[in-house]
Design a binder for these strands. Structure first.
Length: 863
DNA sequence: TTGTTGACTTAGAACTTTATAT
DNA sequence: ATATAAAGTTCTAAGTCAACAA
């Protein structure tokens, strides 16, 4: 890799990754191009696909397009594709008993290793899928294979050169005991009761926590001075009205960024320096500061910026008039800001001290508030400064000018009896409200996307903590219900109504693949999707039951996985794809997130699509933590912890930009592998010199090592010799130093020369070996010894390769997001307790603060 | 029924501080 | 000591989801 790429800012490297994906980009482009952009783009309601309700054959797949009102699609489709019936589809519908649930809840699809391939095979066979065969002990349901390349050729096609790991997984059908398989009304009743039980249990747990609290570890009195007063989780009220968030709220308002101070640095236009009014200069500076980043090189960004910039310049009568982006040269400003950066870095101690002081003062003023008399931290009390909107992915508005927020636009929320903070001199607040059902302290409307911004309490505050606890309790609630819910949607996969089928299929994907709900998106947002908004081009199928997913999700992060899915899911998706079957059409054309969530609410109180993500993340984590070595070192335990964490991150597709220098680090390891291969090659050739007859018996000895280019070998040998010379010189000098100490005579310089000459001789030998391809045996070499060497090298190569993939995967997996948002912190706390690992090894100070409500559980606590 | 908006959580990038290698 | 990388923190964009309006 050129140093060029290493110097790229993170965003740029990430962009490259995003862009380095021809298939996706093409898809996106064609997708949006083909859509008629009429006002807000909600993708046109596609013609509906229906299953004939009267049709007894539940899989008859006879489709009729009931698209009386649906907008006509511009593309035509081969008529032949229209009414095709698939025999194999119907052949397999063996009645309502074919529940393909998994009885032991657990483990999302993308996770479980195939423990028992025999079992897996058996389960997969159709005859086994009837309801009579109740199995007490659930067989492993998931199969994971390391790579898809060999048996999933389609994956290769979709995959870019980037080594995205392709996971292949399988949910196995699982017969369910008949007693358990009764769904609907009876289940619902039962559920109600369990819920009640649950609540009391939760209460009990809390009680225990309280009791424990006293004796439990004093994790170091760190920052818990007045914890008792702040420990809301110790005395949670019973039937508090959930909608009321506080009874008293006092705060000091928000902090506005300082007014712009003109620096007078001139940009160039058409080669000439021009003077800009401060307001114009400020905006030019926004762009200048971003020069050479991916943003500034993005055409959309440039266009949007320039539109706003030139308009502003014109309003300020800038002369000459700025009409061409190409004629603009912002480098003087870029340099100015670079220099400023440098200055800041080189501040003296006093200056740094002063800056810190200033920050502290601000924190004191705005960073704290009083909620119900308790002192609480405020999160983002700084009003967002003006700048250029940095939309992610292909956001149509990226680069637009984000205006300075005026106090008149800002509304404050506080108690009626709280003093209203002073607005900045010469200004007034937009509004003062006293809404105790809202948690925000301040709000304003941002100009680029017309979205509402808020100032909230910090993550460690009671309000956030309470809703965090609630979130995880809901997820734990799902754990109790998941079995029958899964059985339910497995049954629904074969429902006659298309809508129900789609809903069930979506639930399957959300549950097993941890997909997001996927709300509809508007015209002027980046084209990203979640489950319900998947389009045809995002899913490809491969017989018998392999599904390739490739789409841009939240933040335009690519989701690219290959999974084995339940046969019925496979059929359904094929069915959904069959009728309009055009790119740009929704896969789930009858399904809206709102309907899905409404259904989920009926299954379980508080259940929404995102709960599955939380549940599966936490469950997986706890499950994987079982691999923690009982009597390992803390480091070994932490390794297990981080592995579990990483599994969750992969499940949720949490990615990050590959760090600077990563390519270099990888290159180093690859070189190491090559060096081993080089040695192996030498050993092989030596065997042939010792025993030429083996050429026939062991043809593998003749095969060249992969990835070992002649050039590289030559270079490598040069380096080896150079290193050898260095080593000899160093040793020589060291020896002489010792001799001096011992008052001995130093070795003559001629000695060194001789030694070095030997290296030259060796170099010549190597050159000859390279030329002839013959490696004469070294002293004492035998075939056996060489074989042993080769074996050792094989092992080393394998091991090094492993660290390579490990590193590769780690580099683009972000562990933080799942740790912060998805994994119940009580699992971690219990783990630390159980394995005697200090908390601060896994949670930073801010996280310990955020999760303080969770830190009192004992070692036996379970999610 | 559909579209819109408000309020909140989740997300990766960007920036800052600390640890580690040279 | 200084440079570099890694860890930790801040910032704000981009989701989810429910309430409300039309």
């Amino acid at each position: 890799m050129s140093s060029d790429s290493e110097d790229m800012p993170l965003a740029k490297r990430k962009e490259l990754q995003r862009a380095n994906n021809p298939s996706t980009d093409d898809n996106i482009d064609s997708g949006s191009d083909s859509d008629t952009p009429l006002g807000k783009r909600k993708r046109p309601a596609v013609r509906k696909r229906v299953l004939d309700d009267d049709d007894d054959d539940d899989d008859a797949d006879t489709l009729s397009s009931s698209d009386s009102g649906a907008p006509a699609l511009k593309r035509t489709r081969p008529a032949a594709a229209k009414r095709k019936s698939y025999k194999d589809d119907s052949s397999d519908s063996d009645g309502e008993g074919d529940f393909r649930g998994s009885s032991d809840s657990d483990v999302p699809l993308a996770k479980k290793k195939a423990a028992d391939s025999k079992n897996t095979k058996n389960n997969g066979s159709k005859t086994n899928g009837t309801n009579g065969t109740s199995r007490t002990k659930p067989a492993p349901k998931y199969k994971e294979e390391s790579s898809s390349d060999s048996d999933a050729p389609l994956a290769k096609k979709a995959a870019s050169k980037k080594t995205t790991s392709v996971i292949k997984t399988k949910v196995k059908s699982e017969p369910v005991s008949s007693s358990k398989s009764k769904l609907s009304s009876s289940t619902t009743k039962k559920r109600g009761k369990e819920e009640a039980d649950d609540k009391s249990k939760i209460k009990k747990v809390k009680k225990e926590e309280v009791d424990d609290k006293a004796k439990v570890k004093k994790v170091k009195k760190e920052e818990n001075e007045d914890e008792e007063a702040d420990a809301w989780w110790l005395n949670q009220k019973e039937n508090e009205d959930e909608s009321v968030k506080w009874t008293s709220l006092k705060h000091n308002g928000v902090y506005f960024p300082p007014e712009y101070v003109p620096h007078g640095v001139k940009m160039k236009y058409d080669g000439k320096s021009i003077t800009l009014a401060p307001a114009v200069e400020e905006v030019a500076g926004f762009f200048g500061a971003l020069l050479f980043t991916e943003h500034a090189e993005n055409p959309t960004f440039q266009e949007n910026f320039f539109k706003d910039f030139s308009k502003l310049a014109k309003a300020h009568k800038t002369s000459p008039e700025i009409t061409s982006f190409k004629k603009c040269d912002f480098t003087p400003m870029y340099e100015y800001y670079q220099a400023e950066r440098e200055k800041r870095k080189n501040m003296t101690k006093d200056q740094k001290e002063a800056a810190k002081e200033e920050k502290m003062a601000l924190d004191e003023m705005y960073g704290t508030c009083y909620l119900d008399g308790r002192k609480e931290k405020v999160g983002n009390f700084r009003i967002e400064p003006p700048g250029l909107f940095r939309g992610r992915g292909k956001h149509p508005k990226t680069g637009c000018l984000k205006l300075r927020v005026q106090p008149e636009q800002v509304s404050l929320n506080l108690s009626k009896d709280a003093p209203v903070p002073k607005a900045p001199a010469g200004h007034k607040w937009g509004a003062i409200v006293h809404d105790d059902t809202k948690t925000w302290l301040a709000t304003w409307k941002e100009n680029v996307n017309d979205s509402t911004k808020y100032v909230f309490l910090a993550a460690g505050s009671s309000l956030k903590g309470q809703s965090d606890l609630k979130k995880f309790e809901t997820a734990r609630g799902l754990k109790k219900e998941i079995d029958w819910i899964r059985r339910g949607y497995m049954t629904d996969l074969k429902d006659k109504k298309m809508f129900i089928r789609q809903r069930a299929t979506a639930m399957y994907l959300i549950d097993r693949l941890a997909l997001r709900a996927g709300n509809e998106k508007g015209e002027d947002e980046a084209d990203t999707v979640g489950c319900c908004s998947l389009r045809f081009e995002h899913v490809t199928l491969e017989k018998p039951n392999i599904m390739h997913l490739d789409f841009l999700g939240k933040d335009s992060i690519r989701y690219q996985k290959t999974v084995e899915v339940d046969e019925q899911v496979f059929k359904n998706i094929r069915l959904f794809k069959r009728e309009p079957a055009q790119e740009g059409d929704d896969l789930f054309d009858r399904l809206k997130t709102s309907e899905l969530n409404k259904h989920l609410q009926n299954l379980m109180k508080g259940l929404t699509a995102k709960v599955f993500r939380t549940y599966n993340a936490s469950f997986t984590f706890q499950d994987q933590l079982r691999k923690t070595p009982k009597d390992g070192t803390v480091a070994e335990k932490l390794l297990a912890y981080n592995r579990a964490n990483r599994d969750v991150a992969i499940l949720c597709n949490h990615q990050r930009a590959v760090s600077k220098g990563h390519a270099g680090q990888i290159g180093k390891i690859e070189d190491k592998v090559r060096a081993y291969k080089y040695q192996r090659m030498k050993q092989k050739k030596m065997i042939l010199s010792l025993e030429p007859k083996l050429k026939k018996k062991r043809p593998e000895l003749l095969e060249p090592e992969s990835d070992l280019e002649d050039d590289w070998v030559e270079e490598h040998e040069t380096q080896l010799m150079e290193k050898e010379r260095e080593r000899i010189k160093a040793k020589f000098e060291k020896d002489n130093l010792k001799r001096k100490e011992n008052k001995e005579k130093p070795m003559p310089a001629g000695e060194l020369k001789d030694l070095l000459k030997e290296v030259d001789v060796r170099a010549k030998e190597l050159a000859k070996e390279r030329r002839t391809g013959v490696v004469p045996p070294t002293r004492g070499a035998t075939v056996e010894k060489c074989n042993a060497q080769i074996l050792k090298l094989d092992e080393r190569i394998a091991a090094t390769r492993l660290t390579l993939t490990d590193k590769e995967e780690n580099k683009q997996t972000a562990l933080g997001t799942s740790k912060i948002n998805y994994i119940d912190p009580r699992i971690s706390a219990a783990w630390c307790e159980k394995h005697d690992v200090p908390l601060d090894k896994i949670f930073t100070k801010t996280l310990r603060d955020k999760f303080k409500w969770a830190m009192t559980v004992d070692a036996g606590w379970e999610f």
